[in-house]
Amino acid sequence: PDDEWKERLREAEEKNNWKLFEELARKAGVSEEKIEEWKRRWS
């Protein structure tokens, strides 16, 4: 299951679909801290 969400995150990233990325990350149990960090790195 871990690989599956990583794959989906990669797809979201490729499409630059931040909303989807964020949603998937939350569902995968990624901390808000980590998500914010990704946001900063991404923008």
Results as ranks from 00 to 15, higher is better:
residue 1 P to T: 12
residue 1 P to N: 12
residue 1 P to G: 11
residue 1 P to Q: 12
residue 1 P to E: 13
residue 1 P to Y: 13
residue 2 D to M: 10
residue 2 D to H: 10
residue 2 D to Y: 13
residue 2 D to T: 11
residue 3 D to S: 10
residue 3 D to V: 08
residue 3 D to M: 08
residue 3 D to W: 10
residue 4 E to D: 13
residue 4 E to S: 10
residue 4 E to F: 14
residue 4 E to W: 14
residue 4 E to Q: 08
residue 4 E to P: 07
residue 4 E to T: 08
residue 5 W to P: 01
residue 5 W to M: 05
residue 5 W to C: 03
residue 5 W to T: 03
residue 5 W to D: 04
residue 5 W to E: 04
residue 5 W to N: 03
residue 6 K to F: 15
residue 6 K to R: 13
residue 6 K to N: 12
residue 6 K to E: 15
residue 6 K to V: 13
residue 7 E to N: 06
residue 7 E to K: 08
residue 7 E to L: 07
residue 7 E to W: 06
residue 8 R to Y: 13
residue 8 R to S: 11
residue 8 R to I: 15
residue 9 L to I: 06
residue 9 L to N: 02
residue 9 L to V: 03
residue 9 L to G: 03
residue 9 L to M: 11
residue 9 L to E: 03
residue 9 L to Y: 09
residue 10 R to G: 07
residue 10 R to H: 08
residue 10 R to I: 08
residue 10 R to P: 05
residue 10 R to S: 07
residue 10 R to W: 11
residue 11 E to D: 11
residue 11 E to Y: 04
residue 11 E to I: 03
residue 11 E to V: 04
residue 11 E to R: 03
residue 11 E to G: 02
residue 11 E to T: 03
residue 11 E to W: 05
residue 12 A to N: 03
residue 12 A to Y: 08
residue 12 A to E: 05
residue 12 A to H: 05
residue 12 A to G: 02
residue 13 E to G: 12
residue 13 E to W: 15
residue 13 E to F: 15
residue 13 E to Q: 15
residue 13 E to A: 15
residue 13 E to L: 15
residue 13 E to C: 15
residue 13 E to V: 15
residue 13 E to N: 10
residue 14 E to N: 08
residue 14 E to W: 10
residue 14 E to V: 08
residue 14 E to G: 07
residue 14 E to R: 12
residue 15 K to Q: 14
residue 15 K to V: 09
residue 15 K to A: 14
residue 15 K to C: 15
residue 15 K to P: 02
residue 15 K to H: 12
residue 15 K to E: 12
residue 15 K to W: 08
residue 16 N to W: 08
residue 16 N to V: 04
residue 16 N to R: 14
residue 16 N to A: 07
residue 16 N to T: 05
residue 17 N to E: 07
residue 17 N to R: 04
residue 17 N to F: 06
residue 17 N to P: 01
residue 18 W to V: 03
residue 18 W to Y: 04
residue 18 W to K: 01
residue 18 W to N: 00
residue 19 K to W: 10
residue 19 K to Q: 12
residue 19 K to V: 12
residue 19 K to S: 12
residue 19 K to H: 12
residue 19 K to N: 14
residue 19 K to C: 10
residue 20 L to E: 14
residue 20 L to I: 07
residue 21 F to S: 00
residue 21 F to N: 00
residue 21 F to Q: 01
residue 21 F to K: 00
residue 21 F to R: 01
residue 21 F to H: 01
residue 21 F to T: 01
residue 21 F to L: 06
residue 22 E to V: 09
residue 22 E to G: 01
residue 22 E to Y: 13
residue 22 E to P: 00
residue 22 E to I: 09
residue 22 E to D: 05
residue 22 E to H: 05
residue 23 E to D: 10
residue 23 E to W: 12
residue 23 E to N: 05
residue 23 E to P: 00
residue 23 E to C: 09
residue 23 E to Y: 11
residue 23 E to L: 06
residue 24 L to W: 15
residue 24 L to S: 05
residue 24 L to P: 01
residue 24 L to Y: 12
residue 24 L to A: 10
residue 24 L to E: 10
residue 24 L to R: 03
residue 24 L to G: 02
residue 25 A to R: 00
residue 25 A to C: 10
residue 25 A to V: 07
residue 25 A to E: 00
residue 25 A to K: 00
residue 25 A to I: 06
residue 25 A to W: 03
residue 25 A to Y: 03
residue 26 R to M: 06
residue 26 R to D: 01
residue 26 R to T: 03
residue 26 R to P: 00
residue 26 R to Q: 05
residue 26 R to S: 02
residue 26 R to F: 03
residue 26 R to V: 03
residue 26 R to A: 03
residue 26 R to Y: 03
residue 26 R to H: 05
residue 26 R to L: 07
residue 26 R to K: 09
residue 27 K to Y: 10
residue 27 K to P: 00
residue 27 K to E: 13
residue 27 K to I: 12
residue 27 K to A: 15
residue 28 A to F: 11
residue 28 A to E: 05
residue 28 A to N: 08
residue 28 A to M: 12
residue 28 A to R: 04
residue 29 G to D: 01
residue 29 G to T: 00
residue 29 G to Y: 01
residue 29 G to H: 02
residue 29 G to F: 01
residue 29 G to P: 00
residue 30 V to D: 00
residue 30 V to I: 14
residue 30 V to Y: 14
residue 31 S to I: 02
residue 31 S to N: 06
residue 31 S to Q: 05
residue 31 S to V: 03
residue 31 S to M: 04
residue 32 E to C: 10
residue 32 E to R: 06
residue 32 E to I: 05
residue 32 E to W: 06
residue 33 E to Q: 09
residue 33 E to N: 08
residue 33 E to L: 07
residue 33 E to S: 09
residue 33 E to F: 05
residue 33 E to I: 05
residue 33 E to A: 11
residue 33 E to P: 03
residue 33 E to C: 06
residue 33 E to Y: 06
residue 33 E to W: 07
residue 34 K to Y: 08
residue 34 K to I: 13
residue 34 K to C: 12
residue 34 K to E: 13
residue 34 K to G: 03
residue 34 K to M: 14
residue 34 K to N: 06
residue 34 K to L: 15
residue 35 I to F: 02
residue 35 I to K: 00
residue 35 I to A: 00
residue 35 I to T: 00
residue 36 E to W: 07
residue 36 E to D: 10
residue 36 E to F: 06
residue 36 E to N: 09
residue 36 E to M: 12
residue 37 E to W: 04
residue 37 E to K: 02
residue 37 E to G: 01
residue 37 E to I: 04
residue 37 E to S: 05
residue 37 E to D: 07
residue 37 E to V: 03
residue 38 W to K: 02
residue 38 W to F: 10
residue 38 W to P: 00
residue 38 W to V: 06
residue 38 W to C: 12
residue 38 W to D: 01
residue 38 W to E: 06
residue 38 W to R: 02
residue 39 K to M: 07
residue 39 K to A: 05
residue 39 K to N: 03
residue 39 K to H: 09
residue 39 K to I: 09
residue 39 K to Y: 10
residue 40 R to W: 09
residue 40 R to V: 09
residue 40 R to I: 11
residue 40 R to Q: 13
residue 40 R to N: 13
residue 40 R to E: 12
residue 40 R to K: 11
residue 40 R to C: 10
residue 40 R to G: 12
residue 40 R to A: 14
residue 41 R to A: 14
residue 41 R to E: 15
residue 41 R to Q: 15
residue 42 W to M: 05
residue 42 W to E: 02
residue 42 W to T: 03
residue 42 W to C: 11
residue 42 W to G: 02
residue 42 W to L: 07
residue 42 W to D: 01
residue 42 W to V: 04
residue 42 W to F: 14
residue 42 W to K: 04
residue 43 S to Q: 15
residue 43 S to I: 13
residue 43 S to R: 11
residue 43 S to H: 14
residue 43 S to F: 14
residue 43 S to V: 10
